[in-house]
């Protein structure tokens, strides 16, 4: 078991700065997801931790040991790749045993560990087969079993579920969480899928443009985004941002008036779609409904607040028509305020 400290790690490819002095601490046994759109630097950061890429500056410390200059095999970690990287010329058994064989573990112990890992991932009946005879989901299980067989202190996963179809992904996600909790392995998990990150991780590091915008529990990054990007990237529908002008510590939207965290400035009001309720009498923030989409569990309303696009989620029983103007009431404590100039959240007072 080991904790991981990433200390001001930066990486440039020629003129392109893929990572800009990223720092992150992952506790022993913790599961941290690196979440962000493609090109945000999350995979580069993971590959630097693995040692497959060399940082331009900064340090990686695993279990108190500075591994920055060490080869991948000397870092005491295991990795699951996006396209599995299961060796096609070896049986499932030999694939899972690969790491143990490299450590020159005895035959009896190899068999014990392979059987254990295979049982954990429910692939014990395929041990004699070659990967080409397996489905994508089964190959993914082999890749995870290969990583768990060496009982690594640190497990790195690079979009491990993204090549699976939606149903299989959901199933594997649940199973991964159970397996990894049992193993108690420190895990860093790269994904662009927010539901995967929210469902699996103890904490999420949201990355954008080579930086970590926010690190927090899934609920923290969802409810209190640190930047406009985080609010817009996490959540479905994403957070609504309405440009408003504060004067005298108040903002006015339609007939509604709300307390603002600044006295006089242009700010963005961040509002989660489900944090607004339809008022009974049409009072509050005016919302012009353009499209009503019944999603089963809820209604998704798309429309405009003061001419700016907004999406609101209401209970499925709400009676709303397209073209109607309704009033929204909001809980001021659940609002996010963004500094329009910096894009960062304004601290709540």
């Amino acid at each position: 078991m080991a904790d991981i400290v990433i200390d001001r790690v930066a990486k440039s490819f020629g003129d392109f700065q893929a990572l800009k002095e990223v720092s992150l601490s992952v506790g022993d046994g913790e599961f941290v997801a690196l979440l962000g759109p493609s090109g945000c630097g999350k995979t580069t950061l993971l590959r630097i931790i693995a040692g497959l890429e060399t940082q331009s500056s900064g340090r990686v410390v695993i279990g108190g040991r500075d591994v920055s200059g060490l080869a991948p095999r000397e870092r005491g970690l295991a990795m699951v790749f996006q396209n599995y990287a299961v060796f096609p010329h070896m049986t499932v058994f030999e694939n899972i045993a690969f790491g143990l064989r490299m450590q020159k573990v005895g035959q009896v112990e190899v068999k014990r560990q392979v059987d254990r890992a295979a049982a954990l991932l429910h692939i014990d009946q395929y041990l004699d087969r070659y990967p080409a005879k397996l489905s994508g989901g089964q190959r993914q299980r082999v890749a995870v079993a290969r990583a768990l067989a060496v009982q690594p202190a640190v497990l790195l996963m690079d979009e491990p579920l993204s090549n699976l179809d939606a149903l299989l992904r959901l199933e594997m996600r649940t199973e991964l969480k159970a397996v990894l909790r049992e193993a108690g392995t420190t895990t860093i998990y790269v994904t662009h899928d927010q539901t995967e990150a929210m469902g699996l991780a103890d904490r999420i590091a949201v990355m954008y443009g080579g930086r970590i915008d926010q690190i927090g529990t899934p609920l923290e990054v969802y409810a209190t985004p640190a930047t406009r990007f985080v609010g817009g990237f996490i959540g479905n529908p994403p957070m609504n941002f309405i440009k408003v002008k504060a004067s005298g510590g108040q903002i006015r939207v339609g007939s509604a008036s709300l307390p603002a965290p600044v006295r006089d400035a242009e700010i963005d009001l961040g509002l989660r779609g489900e944090d607004a309720a339809l008022s009974a009498d049409g009072s509050g923030i005016p919302f012009d409904v353009r499209v009503v989409e019944p999603m089963g569990s809820h209604l998704l309303l798309t429309g405009a607040i003061e001419g700016q696009l907004a999406r609101i989620v209401t209970p499925p029983t709400a009676r709303v028509q397209a073209g109607e103007r309704v009033g929204l009431t909001v809980d001021p404590s659940r609002l996010t305020w963004i500094d329009a100039a910096t894009g960062r959240a304004i601290a709540r007072t």
Binding site: A71, M79, A85, F87, P88, H89, F98, R146
Partner: peptide, 27 residues
């Protein structure tokens, strides 16, 4: 040969000569 095979072998402890013998050559 996808480079992930060699990378996976490297992560799981294979030195360059072993990677060549066990991964590159068979593939």
């Amino acid at each position: 040969i996808p480079k992930e095979f060699a990378e996976a072998a490297e992560i799981f402890g294979a030195r360059p000569w072993t990677r060549f013998r066990k991964i590159t050559l068979p593939l």
